[in-house]
């Protein structure tokens, strides 16, 4: 299982529209800012297929200006790290 987080910026269509669009995508959770035009996006997927699906759906959004990747965590890697420490 992999979890990734981004900071997302909306296009001229606005933050409201972006949030509505993002909520529709399966595997995506959001946290919007109270005072700035920006929203945090967290994607969760188990397989490559899911990852590609989410990527495509995000690309198709006209309300999304850009996504800045912040964090990517892989479950197996985490477990291995913990075991090796």
């Amino acid at each position: 299982m992999t979890v990734m987080s981004y900071i997302a910026y909306p296009t001229k269509l606005g933050l409201e529209q972006l949030c509505t669009d993002l909520k529709k995508i399966n595997g995506v959770d959001i946290e919007r800012s109270e005072n700035k035009e920006v929203v945090i996006v967290v994607t969760t997927f188990e397989s490559k297929d899911e990852e590609e699906r989410i990527e495509k759906e995000l690309k198709d959004l006209s309300s999304l200006q850009c996504l800045a990747l912040v964090y990517a965590g892989n479950e197996e890697k985490m477990i291995n790290e913990k075991l090796n420490n």
Binding site: V3, M4, S5, E31, I40, V42, V70, Y71, M78
Partner: peptide, 10 residues
Amino acid sequence: MKQVAFASAI
């Protein structure tokens, strides 16, 4: 992990 992802992004 989701928590960590959100926290980092914030």
